[in-house]
């Protein structure tokens, strides 16, 4: 028996909105530790890694490890039926081929449930090695989304370069070039507005705008985003989900042909 209850169903909806650009379907691995998902996008350029801890749920029970393959378009349809303030309870029997989502309104005056068919997905789990990153940048997630959106107008790629002076985002294309530089700004009163850089050595890497833009769909999940970079290693874009876990995106840097 698997049962997970989340008072803020909107958090799960935001997670779904953040990954549905990249993934058509995905397997949710449920264990007593929580719910994990790892999947590459269809082009195998980026990897999505979601971790929702069991103790972040309002109720969590998982008697037997369970992998639930879901079509994310269908899951999106189910969550479209939920109200913004609804509580969601997910339930599945052991070895079940369906999962049930029950939505309850705040006042408990409306209860709806939707049963969705599960899929058997051929999933490939990748082992992600521990990396000592050359630089770790933390910045407001809205600012990151804005910069990526702005610079995407200029070219297909964005160079992210980080030095002790700050972080620079650059793009170039037919119409010209664009550069955005951010200096470290520590705001002790408003931690979420700070830009902080933990630098071991300067690094500059090139990434495809299309994927960076998809990652920023996770902006509503978190005030801050963490970018971890190292030469010849995928970029990690991490959004913390308050009290529940995190959503990470990995993107292979572009390389000289």
């Amino acid at each position: 028996m698997f049962e997970a209850r989340l008072v803020n169903s909107s958090t799960f909806r935001k997670v779904l909105d953040a990954i549905k650009d990249l993934l058509n379907e995905a397997s949710f691995d449920c264990s007593e530790n929580g719910i994990q998902l790892q999947a590459m996008d269809s082009s195998h350029v980026s990897l999505v890694s979601l971790n929702l801890k069991s103790d972040g749920f309002d109720k969590f029970r998982c008697d037997r490890n369970l992998t639930m393959g879901m079509n994310l378009t269908s899951l999106g349809k189910v969550f479209k039926c939920s109200g913004a303030d609804d509580t969601v309870t997910m339930k599945a029997q052991d070895y079940a081929d369906t999962v049930t989502f029950m939505f309850e309104s705040k006042k408990q005056d409306k209860i709806s449930d939707y049963e969705m068919k599960l899929m058997n997905l051929d999933q490939e789990h990748l082992g992600i090695p521990d990396t000592e990153f050359s630089c770790i940048i933390k910045m407001p997630s809205i600012e990151f989304a804005r910069i990526i959106r702005d610079l995407s107008q200029f070219g297909e790629s964005i160079v992210i370069s980080c030095t002790k002076e700050g972080v620079k985002f650059s793009a170039q294309g037919d119409i010209g070039t664009g550069n955005v530089k951010l200096a470290q700004t520590h705001n002790f009163d408003k931690e979420e507005e700070s830009v902080t850089i933990d630098l071991q050595e300067p690094v500059a890497l090139t990434f495809a705008c299309q994927y960076l833009n998809s990652f920023t769909k996770a902006t509503p999940l978190s005030n801050q985003v963490k970018l971890s970079m190292c030469e010849n290693v995928p970029l990690v874009v991490e959004y913390q989900i308050p009290e529940l876990g995190h959503l990470r995106f990995y993107l292979a840097p572009k390389i000289e042909e």
Partner: peptide, 13 residues
């Protein structure tokens, strides 16, 4: 520039 696959960096488990 070329776009490599993410699988190039991570091991199959």
């Amino acid at each position: 520039m070329a776009q490599p696959s993410i699988a190039r960096y991570f091991n199959n488990r």
